[in-house]
Amino acid sequence: MLLAATLGLLTAMLLALARAVLGPTLYDRILAVNSFGTKTVLFIAVAGFLAGRPDFLDIALVYALINFIGTVAVLKLSHYGEFGASATGAHGDDL
């Protein structure tokens, strides 16, 4: 059962990867990377139970907590063109 779940997660990861590579817009890629991160959290959790090592959950927790920081950074940069909180920054939609 758990093995099937793992393989299903891997398939979902492949699909997310395809979307991240093909694009076409920046927001497709952001969404793809974010959902890839979520799949990774699930994958590590499931693999931990599959291997009988519940302490893998620590790693899954790290991802669950800080995975979206990269996404926030991308969105902020593409919106304002810089990291400092200036709302007057250039619109970075050159992609």
Partner: peptide, 8 residues
């Protein structure tokens, strides 16, 4: 896109 793929 490369920065995001490096995340993956």
């Amino acid at each position: 896109a490369v920065a995001m793929l490096s995340g993956i």
